[in-house]
Amino acid sequence: MVVGAGPYKNLTEAYPLDKKTLNKIVWRSFLSGFSRNGETGESIGWLWAIMPGLKKIHTDEQDLAYAMGHHLEYVETGSFLSTLAMGAVLSMEQCKYDPALIRSFKASVSAAADGIGTALFWYLIIPFTAMGVLSLAQGGSPAAALIYFLITAVLAVAARFAGMYIGYAQGTRLADTLSKKKKGAVRSIRLAGAFMIGAMIIVNMKDVSAALTMYNGSDSLDMASQLNQLLPGIIPLLLTWLMWHLLTRKNWSPMKCILLIVVIALAGAAIGLWAGTYEPLIHIG
């Protein structure tokens, strides 16, 4: 299913989204992680969350279906600042930019939101709050959990609202600047998007790493570190290339690709290729 091969039909800029719609999207964003799946990340929840905005922007029915289709492509926002990306992407939709630009912009801005959210919450707020209440909890006080919850919950809600308004305002500003030279902007943003997709392949796939150790008598060879010497993340890079090749050159359907991936994954686990704590079926080497 190739969606979004050309520009939207109705190219008149939509009215700015009102506060009520933006708030509705923020509340929906809290429910957008349910459908997190292996193939497209949070895309179903992402699309459902921004639907109120998309419906206001695209009055043309075909354009709406078209926009919904391309928003179902892979997106991962890390939840905590998902609204930052949502607001920025909606401001681009509102100016009716070419979907090629919106796709690339979405890839870079969602990865940026993921990066900021991860750094802010998983590496700063959550560890610091946890460490702060830890001694209280070790002493057996349930109040520790309450304090922990209140601090992180208030910050999480505040971050979502702030993210939405900052993302939408800054996105609109950027869209205005770019609108003078729309054609040039497409190329620049596509470059940034491709760059970020390359980075995401490495970062989001870190959890799949080779962990094979081969033994030859008393000598052993650690495949993981050998592959890392070659290039960290070589497995996801090669697999993404293979999928792209099968999709575009061999005309495979996504379903067939998924089956191939499941076979590769199970075969890899059977010989103990993937990192993790499990007993492989066959020991090689």
Binding site: G38, I197, L239, M243, T248, I261, A265, G268, A269
Partner: peptide
């Protein structure tokens, strides 16, 4: 472990679809 790895590796297909479409 294989199924869990499949869940992660499937992202490659998600990336490939975007790469095709851009």
């Amino acid at each position: 472990a294989g199924l869990a790895a499949a869940g992660s590796l499937m992202k490659c297909l998600g990336f490939a679809v975007i790469l095709r479409n851009i």
